[in-house]
Design a protein around this nucleic acid. Sequence first.
DNA 1: TTAGGGTTAGAG
DNA 2: CTCTAACCCTAA
Length: 848
Amino acid sequence: MGDPSSSASSLEWLWTIEYLARFRQLDPSILHHLIDAAPVLSEHLGKSTREMVSLRCLEQLFGIGNGVPNDVPSVGEPKRTFDFSGTCEDALKSILKETSVSDLRMTRSDVLRWDIHPFITHKRACMPKCALEKLKDEISKGTHPNAAALTELIGVVHKNDENGKITVDSGHHNAVTGRIDSDETDAQVMAPEESTNSLPLENKNGMVGGDSHHRNLLPLKRNKSSLDNENPAGEHQEDQGGVGNGDLLLNVKRVKSNTMCISNSTERSFILQNGKRLVEDSSEKLVRVKEKGSCQMERESQIRLAECKSLENGHDNFVATKELGNSHNVGVSADFLNNQCENAGNANRMQSDRSGDGPSQHILVDEVHEAEHILVGVKERGSCQMQRESQIGELAECRSLENGHDKFVATKELGDSHNAGVNADFQHNQSESAGDANKMQSDRSGDGPSHHISVDSLSGLHRDAAVEKLGGMEHLCQEDTSSDGDEYHLRKVDVAMEKSHFLSSQCTLNHVSPTNWTELHLCVKCSKDGQLLVCNAVGCPLVVHKECLGSLPRFDEEGNFYCPFCSYSLAISEYMEAKKKASLARRELSAFIHKQTESSHSKEHNNLNQDGDEDDMSGNVRESESNQTNNGGYAFEVNSQLEKRRGDKQPVEPTVSCSDIKLINQEEDPDVTHAITNVSTGEKEREEMASECLTVGGLERQDQTFANPKCNGDNPMRKDSECFPLNGKQAGVIEKNVLEQQSSDQENISDEGNKENLVSNYSIRFQRREKQYLSPAIPQLRRKKVHWTTEEEEMLKEGVQKFSNVGERAIPWKKILEYGSSVFLNGRTTVDLKDKWRNICKGSPKCK
DNA sequence: TTAGGGTTAGAG
DNA sequence: CTCTAACCCTAA
């Protein structure tokens, strides 16, 4: 862009490319074509443009944009990482140098060699505003010197008062300049001069009337005949009654002479059949692709993404694509669809989207170029079953029957096509999806990049991911159960996506453009000013009231505020780092433990085997190790503690171990704690305790607790737990140890409050357990004796005098305790007072 | 919540 | 070992 050789025209190209590259939904192949078509040599692309394109290529390479994770367990050789300070271009180059990349696809093994996700996520987050966005902001604020002229050039913004839909009427219908609707505050930027280029614009909150799509939004380079031909689409659009607001509307017009165009003016339509509901839904997503070749062929593709559509059951998702025209490549929609499909698994999002202000998106592509499209229609319904209805020759029609509770997936394609492969694959995958009702992939293995569309639904390994999206961050702890670390990579990407959706939806809700928030300092939640927290993450526009956060604001050590999105993203990064360390340490620990059990404790081994517990324990150990991620790293907490203790070469009191574990656990990430405590009490709790303490016992205390006769098969306790190693007394010891330690630390100060803080929940649980099988043979632990001070005695006497009524024999010890609470040590109870008074009375018979 | 009998740790 | 203060348990 800074290239002095750039003409105004080439500048547009640069801007366009740069801007388009921001959209993950846009296939890099389109960027490639754009760059080819641009009157700018690729080496003269501006730095930011190159960077953005490189980033997009990286995302494509590693399947970030299309939601395909590196779903191979990341075991084995360590991955290559990238320095965040490096550029995407450099990273891309180094990758390309060392891998067998073909069509922006890498082999799985190649993918596994790189730990690129954090890098990509970082780069994506740090990417500065592109030139077009800056220009747009300036125009919308009127700060640009030519703002007025540009605004006029763009056209008049209409708002449909009736339904709030906004349309844009261009005064330049003959201009090739593409345009997108705009909202009242955010005039869109168009090419500053007549050009065959159109500028893609993001519509953060535009609502496009169904019909207005045709009149105003359809690419201008359409001839009338084609308009006639697209009636089906038109009707459809009219029926659908518009597009949900908050949509992202991307209009791309591509112009490229193409002699390869098939001279076929017949439009092929791909219409998803979804019954009336589809038509009525107002929160669809619409992606339209129009192509027009110089050979007069015009193609139009429409992809409707009626995401989050509420059907009869109120929880259905609908994602549909529609394509008109021949095509032989996967185009804009694949990644986009993918995102939608992923979202489709998200009931929560569905609801928000259904509300009309969700992050639905529109992509409008007017392409005068040999088109490359993918046609995928997906409708997903709650109970996740799919049926394929038919496939008709070249008109591969894949349509799911709409039965009452089925996930509905439909693709329909009309016209000659190189897309047979697409549909074939798609349908194939649909069949798979019908099998597990869970995942749908469209893999186009033919020319051009393949695209995967996956729907994470509600079963199998992907359930967690889906649940995650369902519940957002609240489900973090459940997400942690995913053993696949790559989920987190994806999650980070999703955070960015979710954030964008959030901002988009907030724009719609509040009729505010993003610039209002960031630059006028308005809260993204309530759009009001006041004392606002500004996210310190690079490039994050989020500004919010502390009160609007819904939780306590998060600051880093330097006191910088981070919005929930960035905070979450950072947390994921940290988690990944920690997880790596944990993994390494776990392996070491495992080796360590294994070695020890081989070389020693044969005696204990035998003892344990008598009870059959050893197997359980070692099983627990192993399980803890293997399932480390399944309990949010909890097992590692345990083991790490053990390792620490071993490292200290200190004899470990088993009870203390358990106690410590809990204390540690309490300091853990609340999510993890939640994961542990959020199981149903009772059985689950017992499982946990048994598991945790068996694990400890197995490692640390074989000759201690397990020698305890209480923990054998004859002990009735067994029925309550699988030879729970800690009997009541031991549980008491836990408490006692902790308390006494604390007590001595505090110079004889027994602090009930401290007790409560100190005594782990485990102890509490043990106590609760005790009651279930309390045996007189098991003496309860006693509190440490705390002698009365003279002040206490005085206060006691005073209290007794004050509160004891002559007529009543009973002395209100409770009142006295409260009365003298400032003097009585915190551990004192009414019973203590009573006993002490008794002692006092013993010494001086005059007191009754 | 209180009273009263019983138990126990620790000082002498 | 005895004594006693402090603590525990249970019934009301």
